[in-house]
Write a protein that binds this DNA or RNA. Structure first.
Length: 318
DNA sequence: TACTTTTGACCTCAT
DNA sequence: AATGAGGTCAAAAGT
């Protein structure tokens, strides 16, 4: 903590979500918001969840958004790489009755709409002014869905994380180009890095990785801001910048770490040993992957079936 | 030919 | 200061 303003725990605010069962998350005013949350963050009142997904996982079908005043929750953790989660959230119903909900109750009562393409802009403006990075103070009129904001490194721009189903990966206004992929220590699945491909010089980036919690869930994190309007042409959106062959972001690949006997960047592997090499690995571990151009591009498939015709020799020492 | 993807190397930052 | 993880670069390969 100390004088680092970012050592503040979670911020939960009510805003902009569906209202199943007439539950309306809200707060009386900003001051009360913060008092309430600082109380929640006291050690003896805080319980860390296993992850934000515990709150935000969609356990039921996404509800139709009734109107633009729908409310939603968000949790913002601007500082630490290990998110802190409130174990209770104050809810006001339409009769102004207050109640504190436990996570399980939240999961039951709050159904989140899919993320709109303007989510980034909105989220950046939600936190009280003193907790927003200067570059994040944008228009507050845009409404959005539940998110997390974190940053791992001090110069890293704010990160907003969604947990999306596979089909929801397509709900992205922007065009993205993949520029990297890395195995992540905390996950058996690699992280795929994308940069905005709509405008040259745009600082917006995102990464996608498969959630270890469920087969059809993906963790999508957004960084930075777009410095241009979204592309209008549908064929130039959501990673399909060069064509319309796939609705999915291009090049999403998910290979469990177990496939690789080495670390993330085995230096002994030469560049010429690429995919489509002729050697089939021994006993490939069944994996999940999404590849463009697959027979059914919108489905995750058991990648082990495709190992028969395509190997990744680079993952093995010879 | 132009563009995207892949992936090892390299860099930065946190611990 | 050393180490490792995460993020980016860029050449090669694919489309």
């Amino acid at each position: 903590m100390g004088d680092d303003n970012w050592d503040i725990g979670a911020i939960v605010r009510g805003c902009n979500i569906n209202r199943p069962n007439n539950v309306v998350p809200t707060f009386e005013n900003d001051h009360d918001d913060w008092d309430f949350f600082y109380r929640l963050l006291d050690d003896d009142q805080m319980t860390n969840f296993q992850g934000l997904g515990d709150i935000f996982s969609r356990t039921s079908p996404v509800a139709q958004q009734q109107n633009s005043d729908d409310l939603s929750f968000e949790i913002i953790n601007p500082t630490s790489s290990v998110p802190i989660f409130a174990d209770q959230v104050k809810i006001m119903d339409q009769n102004d009755n207050q109640q504190l909900l436990q996570p399980a109750q939240l999961r039951q009562q709050i159904i989140f709409p899919p993320p709109p393409p303007t989510a980034l802009t909105y989220v950046q403006a939600v936190a009280p002014q003193e907790l927003i990075y200067p570059q994040q103070q944008l228009a507050q009129s845009v409404r959005s869905t539940p998110v997390i904001q974190t940053r791992r490194r001090k110069n890293q721009s704010i990160k907003i994380i969604y947990e999306l189903r596979q089909e929801e990966l397509t709900d992205d206004t922007w065009a993205w180009r993949k520029y990297g992929q890395k195995p992540i220590k905390s996950s058996p699945f690699p992280r795929n890095y994308y940069m905005c491909n709509t405008s040259k010089g745009c600082k917006a980036k995102k990464h996608i990785e498969k959630s270890p919690k469920a087969q059809d869930l993906f963790v999508v994190a957004y960084y930075g801001e777009h410095d241009h309007p979204p592309p209008v042409n549908k064929s130039c959106r959501a990673g399909c910048a060069r064509g319309t062959k796939s609705k999915l972001p291009r090049g999403i690949s998910i290979f469990p770490r177990a496939l690789s006997s080495k670390s993330s960047s085995p230096s002994s592997v030469s560049r010429r040993r690429r995919y489509r090499s002729s050697v089939t690995p021994l006993s490939p571990t069944p994996t999940l992957e999404i590849q463009n151009g697959s027979p059914n591009k919108d489905e995750m498939v058991d990648a082990s079936q495709r190992w028969q015709g395509r190997s990744r020799e680079c993952c093995y020492d010879s």
